[in-house]
């Protein structure tokens, strides 16, 4: 069944269609949320929240943009809410990125030596931790562009900003990331 068919059925309140649609996107939504929130549990909670919002407001999706754009925009907004609440509550999330990421590093490159894998894992942990120190708009742009690999136009639609601004924001976000990573510079040389 095509995505459009699923959406049509969702608009009629068909729960099976929702399940099919959400199953397709659950991984992407959780990973965007993980990029933004740097915490596995929060990312899953945020993803749940996203899908509940979609469930409640699917009738307002008028298909001008693609479903994924609409969905990722809701994801970005929901994660912003989470970040603000976290900030307000004074909660500090301890980043255990090494533990999270390390579990899967060997899937990526089977030809690497153990040392290389360890180094990559350390770098990944450092980058994940550094992203969590970025300000909100930089986190989302790094997540969408570098981690999720979305194109400028899609990012521009998700964030409702001009494509030119996407580039300049990526530049600023990377500069900020580089600054934070200076303390771990030796890992990257």
């Amino acid at each position: 069944m095509t995505e459009n068919d699923l959406i049509r059925k969702c608009k009629k309140g068909n729960r099976e269609a929702f399940n099919a649609l959400f199953s397709r996107y659950q991984s992407q939504v959780i990973n965007i949320a993980y990029g933004m929130l740097s915490d596995r549990e929060d990312a899953c909670d945020a993803a749940q929240e996203v899908f509940v919002k979609v469930y409640k407001s699917i009738s307002s999706f008028n298909e001008k943009s693609s479903f994924s754009t609409w969905l990722y925009r809701i994801t970005a907004n929901t994660c912003s809410d989470f970040l603000r609440k976290r900030q307000r509550g004074g909660n500090v999330i301890s980043i255990n990125a090494a533990a999270d990421d390390g579990r899967e590093f060997d899937i990526e490159d089977e030809n690497s030596s153990v040392d290389e894998k360890m180094e990559l894992s350390e770098r990944q942990a450092a980058v994940r931790a550094a992203i969590s120190e970025l300000k909100e708009e930089h986190r989302i742009i790094i997540t969408l562009c570098d981690i999720e690999g979305l194109g400028y136009d899609e990012i521009a639609s998700i964030l409702k900003i001009p494509s030119g601004t996407v580039k300049s924001r990526i530049n600023r976000a990377r500069s900020a990331l580089k600054k934070i990573l200076m303390k771990n510079r030796e890992l990257f040389l």
Partner: peptide, 12 residues
């Protein structure tokens, strides 16, 4: 190296 590491971050 920083960018390539960001791009390589594993998915959960």
């Amino acid at each position: 190296s920083m960018i390539s590491t960001a791009k390589s971050l594993p998915k959960i």
